[in-house]
Design a protein around this nucleic acid. Structure first.
Lengths: 241, 241
DNA sequence: CGAGCCCTTGAAACTCGTCAATGATCGTGG
DNA sequence: CCACGATCATTGACGAGTTTCAAGGGCTCG
């Protein structure tokens, strides 16, 4: 159940057999399935649980008073929430499923048991930093890149993140989201997302069709996106104290 | 030296005299002054130190290859960096001074000594979560709000954050940044920032002139901004386990 | 008193959003 | 198995918001 999570965590921090086992136990204990568009945790609700995404796609988002929605994080298989959300009383954003998802639900007590183990504590801290780093890159993406660059950049990121957990077959993957979802991530209208996807297709860089992404020319896609994967900290087992 | 930091931390987590003292010691130990535009930590540099801003204004930013700059965080007096940056080998963004700043520089060892104390560990975790929460709000701000709303929202946020550390006199404060800096925060051109500031002034909501911000009508400013301060977790000493 | 940076304003161009209509795809039930 | 409805993708025309370019004016500091 936790193989994808382990792919992610053990990339930087080796875990003991005991730690792996504890994680596996926690993740198989309370698995829940949600349908696409289901809300996992409402904005304003008590922040009393966190999730591990086992399969499918979820997201964090904020809603403005008039219904405008901004997605601030993709939660891909193997991703887990920041364990420090427990230090805050209530959610200032929501978590929802973009496709059908299987998630493990962890209580504060479960997390405390896990973080008592030093290797896991390190791995989870590192996980949180990664997501913060991605968030900063998204801000830059939306703030400073053109619509075309933005989409290209997001597709580069997604493919790298999915590759880590073994969900890329060469340069193609399933991506069970709509163009409107992409728009809410990239701060673009769904119409304009469509136009840019068409241009990506015409220029032979990538095709996103029927919930399936094919990257035809990864190098060129990275180039037009200005994609520098540093922020994903992909380097395995780097030296860090 | 650390009174503003203590304002921030003790808002949610009471600290023992010993903890306060340890913090004060750490912060007075290695104080450095930087000029406006100085770089405190370069993108790509080892992430081997963190900062407490004692006075002045700093920021985190990312630079694209062609020079476009996106500021992703304001570091106001009393703010301190996420302690988990040590889990990552190198900086994926830069830290620079926007105005002359006094900062305390903390090594990993110094931080480890501090986080050995449970109250401080809690307070620092909570601090990190707050900044992540602000980052998410900024993403929403840039992604989903109009230029006018965006500026109004940022001014609301800044005034609330400065108020906590005692740097608001009624509804006015010093804000030693340029309109071009504001543009790099808000993902707007400096020209358009200027136009929106003019409109804010004309409509009697707020005036930003000569590095000085005056909010004439806080309620109206919040209204046009759609500002909901929940994400700043201002509520003192809320119940959180 | 001058130099440099910052602010201010206008005009023109462009990117992207909105509106609207058509077509494709998928799941559901007759 | 096909028909239907709903959701999603696609395309065009038009308009709004924002950027860029350019020039002038003001403030501040040496």
């Amino acid at each position: 159940m936790t193989s994808r999570l382990l792919c992610r965590l053990e990339r930087h921090t080796p875990l003991s057999a005991e730690e792996r086992h504890a994680l596996d136990l926690a993740a198989t204990n309370t698995v829940r399935r949600f349908n696409a568009r289901d809300t996992l945790l409402k904005q304003g609700a008590p922040a009393d649980r966190i999730f591990i995404v086992l399969d499918g796609l979820a997201c964090r988002y904020k809603l403005l008073a008039d219904g405008r929605r901004q997605i601030s994080e993709f939660m891909l298989p193997g991703d887990l929430c920041d364990i420090r959300t427990f230090t805050v009383p209530r959610m200032d954003h929501a978590i929802a499923a973009l496709s059908p998802v299987d998630v493990a639900v962890l209580s504060m007590e479960a997390v405390q048991r896990l973080t008592a183990m030093p290797g896991l504590a390190r791995a989870l801290a590192r996980n949180s930093i990664l997501h913060q780093s991605i968030l900063r890159e998204w801000l830059t993406n939306i703030g400073k890149r053109t619509a075309f660059e933005r989409i290209a950049h997001l597709l580069c990121e997604i493919s790298e993140r999915l590759r880590i957990v073994g969900l890329m077959s060469g340069d193609t993957c399933d991506l069970p989201i709509t163009q409107s979802d992409l728009g809410d991530v990239l701060a673009l209208s769904s119409v304009h997302v469509n136009r840019m996807l068409m241009e990506l297709r015409r220029s032979g860089l990538a095709t996103f069709h029927n919930r399936r992404l094919v990257i035809h020319d990864p190098a060129a896609l990275r180039r037009v996106a200005g994609f520098d994967p540093d922020y994903l900290h992909l380097d395995s087992l780097s030296a860090a104290a």
